[in-house]
C-alpha cells in the first residue's frame, strides 16, 4: 500500500464532498421549514448541470449560461412548491414525500427526452493544477471549494443577518408563533424551495465539468445529499456541508483504496451507520424522534 496517494484521494473527495454538502443544504432548508423530504432535490442538480451544458453548447458564454440555468432551477423549485401547496388540507407527510417522488420520476423522464442518455459536460475552468500538502489539486477542486464557501457565507448572512432569513429560521422553529408576528409561513416555505432549487442547480453546475452529468444522476446525487444532511444533522444546513465533505472524503478513500465500482455504495453504508450510531447527526440535537 502506497500511503503517498492518500492525500490525492482526499483532495478528489473534498470537492465532490462540497457538492454533496450543497445538495444536503437543500434538503435541510426544505425539511426545516416544511418537514418534507424533497426527493426531487437531485433533479434540480441534474437540470442545473445539463441546462448549462445546453446553453454553453449554444455558444453562450458561461457567465451568461450559469445565471440562466440557476434562474431555471429557481423557477422549477417554485413550481414544485406551488404544486405541493395544492394538496388537500390535512395531507400527511407521506403524501408530500410521495408527490415529490412522482415529480422526481417525471422530471427524470423529461430530462431523458431533452438531453438524451449520454453523459455530458462543459468547460468551466481551465486545466491546471497546484501542489498542496502532497496532493495535486486541480483548478476544478479550487473553483468548487471557493463556490461552496461563497454559498455558505451568503447563506449564513441571509439566515443570521437579514430579517427575512431570520423569519425563515423563526418559521422552522415555530411556524404558529411566527404567524403572530406577521410572518407568512407559506412564503417562507416557497422561499426554501426556491433557495434549495437554486443551490441544487449550482451544485449541478459545479459537479458537471469534473464528473460529467447524465439524465439519471439525480437519484444517486439525492441520496448522497441526503446522507450529507443526515451526517450533519438535518436541522442544521451548515452541518450538511460538513457532512458532505466527510462523505466526500470517505468516498474518495473508498474509491481509491477499495473499488470505484462501489462509488455509490459508500454513501449508502455511511447513511446506515450514522442512523445506527448517531441519528441526530454530528451536530444535531435529537432532530429525529426515536420511537419508544
Amino acid at each position: 500500500m502506497d500511503w503517498d496517494v492518500i492525500p490525492q484521494f482526499l483532495a478528489g473527495g473534498l470537492a465532490i464532498g462540497a457538492v454533496y454538502g450543497l445538495i444536503g443544504v437543500g434538503f435541510s432548508l426544505i425539511y426545516n421549514t416544511s418537514k418534507v423530504i424533497n426527493f426531487a432535490q437531485g433533479e434540480f442538480v441534474v437540470y442545473g448541470g445539463l441546462a448549462t451544458v445546453s446553453l454553453t453548447a449554444a455558444s453562450l458564454p458561461t457567465a451568461v449560461a450559469i445565471p440562466l440555468s440557476l434562474a431555471a432551477s429557481v423557477v422549477l423549485g417554485g413550481a414544485l412548491q406551488s404544486l405541493l401547496s395544492t394538496a388537500r388540507r390535512g395531507s400527511n407527510e407521506l403524501t408530500y414525500i410521495m408527490t415529490t417522488i412522482g415529480v422526481a420520476i417525471a422530471m427524470q423522464g423529461l430530462a431523458q427526452h431533452i438531453w438524451g442518455t449520454d453523459f455530458k459536460t462543459f468547460a468551466l475552468y481551465s486545466d491546471g493544477t497546484i501542489r498542496l500538502m502532497g496532493a495535486t489539486v486541480n483548478y476544478g477542486t479550487i473553483t468548487t471549494l471557493l463556490a461552496t464557501s461563497t454559498v455558505c457565507a451568503l447563506l449564513w448572512v441571509f439566515l443570521y443577518r437579514t430579517m427575512i432569513g431570520k423569519a425563515m429560521r423563526a418559521c422552522a422553529n415555530d411556524s404558529r408563533a411566527a404567524q403572530t408576528i406577521g410572518i407568512r409561513p407559506r412564503r417562507m416555505v416557497l422561499l426554501a424551495y426556491v433557495a434549495s432549487a437554486g443551490i441544487g442547480g449550482l451544485a449541478g453546475i459545479l459537479i458537471t465539468p469534473s464528473q460529467m452529468m447524465s439524465y439519471d444522476n439525480g437519484v444517486p446525487l439525492a441520496i448522497k445529499g441526503f446522507t450529507a444532511a443526515i451526517v450533519g444533522g438535518l436541522a442544521n444546513p451548515f452541518g450538511a456541508v460538513v457532512g458532505g465533505v466527510v462523505l466526500g472524503l470517505l468516498e474518495g478513500l473508498g474509491v481509491g483504496l477499495i473499488s470505484s465500482d462501489l462509488q455509490n455504495a459508500y454513501a449508502f453504508l455511511s447513511l446506515l451507520v450514522i442512523l445506527l450510531v448517531r441519528p441526530q447527526g454530528l451536530f444535531g440535537r435529537a432532530a429525529a424522534g426515536s420511537a419508544r
Partner: peptide, 22 residues
C-alpha cells in the same frame, strides 16, 4: 430495518432508494 425503522420519519424510504444503485 434496524437502523432506519428504529426512528420515526421516512429514513427507510431514503435507505431503500439506494438499493437499486447499490
Amino acid at each position: 430495518a434496524v437502523p432506519t425503522l428504529r426512528l420515526r420519519g421516512y429514513y427507510l424510504a431514503l435507505a431503500t432508494l439506494g438499493f437499486p444503485v447499490l
